[in-house]
Simulated scan of single mutants.
Amino acid sequence: MDASPTFQNIPADKQQRVLGEARREFAERGFLGASMNRLSARLGIAKGSLFKYFGSKEGLFSRVFDGAVERFALFLREARDETKGRPLAERLERVLLVGTEFVRTHPDIYAIYLKMLAGGDFPLREQFLGKVRALSARFLTPIIVEAKASGELPETLDATLAVFVLDAVLDRFVQAQAQPWMDIGLGLSLDDPENSRQAAGKLAAMLAGGFHVG
């Protein structure tokens, strides 16, 4: 959802401050717990201005989430483009690490995502999470298709199934670093980039080899 022309016409630094504080509010308290009163107090602006900018709390959250997806898309696009033409295992390693880099850079956005996964107190939850999955598929599919075209993967490989597997592994790899209880003994942590890099390299090699099976 686009913000109103009123919001789009305020200075860019003020726009970023409003959206940044909104991300913080939703990350800390979820959607139902987020307060437009508290947010307006943080920003030092009238609550009425927030409604003029976004129409409702739902409208504000929609703008925050769409902006988060746009930021993640930039990370993914850069990773895809910078590894184009390289071996599949190397590309998959970069895929695994780019998710971690994004979370380290934008912890508030990832906190919102985790809250959405865990509960249903967000408007249009399925629609928003579907956007994340669709973005991942758009990014991952060309990597598989290019590997098939180069002969690195068999022509008979079902690209849709391969992308399904990659998306699931990418999501779990990042979650295991952000939530220790999801780790099964790999010692993954956002605070240990080197261990994450080593694990990503081994996992990428396993995935690239596994796609030849069957």
Rank of each mutant, 00 (worst) to 15 (best):
V145Y: 02
V145Q: 06
V145P: 00
E146S: 12
E146V: 14
E146H: 08
E146G: 07
A147K: 02
A147S: 10
A147C: 10
K148M: 09
K148I: 14
K148E: 07
K148H: 05
A149L: 09
A149S: 09
S150R: 10
G151V: 12
G151F: 07
G151C: 10
E152Y: 05
E152N: 08
L153A: 08
L153I: 11
L153P: 01
P154W: 10
E155C: 08
E155W: 08
E155G: 13
T156Y: 09
T156M: 07
T156F: 11
L157S: 08
D158Y: 06
D158T: 13
D158S: 12
A159E: 15
A162E: 14
V163F: 06
V163N: 04
F164E: 15
F164W: 13
V165C: 11
V165M: 11
V165G: 01
V165A: 12
V165D: 08
V165H: 06
L166K: 01
D167V: 08
L170C: 02
L170H: 00
D171V: 11
D171S: 13
D171T: 15
R172L: 14
R172K: 13
R172H: 15
F173Y: 02
F173M: 02
F173W: 04
F173V: 00
V174P: 00
V174D: 02
Q175N: 13
A176W: 04
A176Y: 02
A176P: 03
A176H: 04
Q177L: 07
Q177Y: 03
A178C: 12
Q179K: 11
Q179C: 14
P180D: 11
P180Q: 09
W181F: 15
W181T: 13
M182Y: 15
M182W: 14
D183R: 09
G185S: 14
L186Y: 05
G187A: 14
G187K: 06
S189I: 08
L190W: 11
L190R: 05
L190Q: 07
D192C: 05
D192L: 09
E194C: 06
N195K: 13
N195Y: 03
N195F: 03
S196K: 01
S196C: 09
S196Y: 01
R197E: 03
Q198L: 11
A199I: 08
A199N: 02
A199P: 01
A199H: 01
A200V: 00
A200K: 00
G201L: 05
G201Q: 14
G201F: 03
G201Y: 02
K202G: 07
L203T: 01
A204S: 10
A204K: 00
A205I: 12
M206Y: 11
L207E: 04
G209V: 11
G210P: 01
G210Q: 10
G210I: 12
F211K: 01
H212G: 12
V213S: 08
V213E: 12
G214H: 11
G214F: 05
G214T: 15
